[in-house]
Amino acid sequence: MTDWPRIRSVGLSGLLVTFAEKMSEPANRAALAFRAAVEEQDWSEVSETSTSLVSTFVQFEVSQDAIAKMTDRLRGLLETRDWFAEALPAGRSLWHVPTVYGTDLAPQLEEAAEAAGLDPDVAIAELSQARVRVLTIGFAPGQPYMGELPPHWDIPRQQGLTKSVPPGSLVVAIRQLIIFTNASPTGWRHIGQTAFRTFRPGSAMPFPLSPGDELIFPSITRQEFDRIADDPTGGAEREALT
């Protein structure tokens, strides 16, 4: 027996089921699959569920009894299968998000390539073909943390902060990519620019991305980017994953 998964209380908000101490692909998959299974149970007490990198959070009206009862239920559900071996939940999408690599729009491509030990052209070729998964959404609304890139992309965050990257920036560090929702300071390196808006308040689909979705960032020219720059979908195409 290992210590994992662990069930811990989150203040007076609910319970957290954590599958591993560190980020890993199987632990992330387990958290996504477990959240889907909790949703499927349709327990009336549960008001909200979410995932972080390696955990599933279950929010409910907390009381002594409710905590004991929910802990038992979650344990019971955990025991029904090996969550690390579970498939990803159904209903996910694959997104193709056109991206300008480098240029004045994304000035840290070369720096990041060097940190990964690659020529800039090789780095662009790799990044534009890599297929990454939304590991979690957080920090800002709709903002995806995606991974994992191959091990040589395990590059640290830079020491100083970049004062501001614009919305739609594609940044890299620790084998992960982020598309920024809003203009923001960051320690991650700005390698690409998309016109993809990850949060579209007022639209029919305000949060286009969900945890578990997969993305590819095909390389486009600056001219093509200018053509799609004002389109909130950023020229992205979506296909259903089955």
């Binding site: 959240r35 008001s47 909200e48 800002a140 945890p211």
Partner: peptide, 9 residues
């Protein structure tokens, strides 16, 4: 605006 934690809000 409860209910949107999973999508970052």
């Amino acid at each position: 605006r409860p209910g949107y934690r999973a999508v970052g809000l």
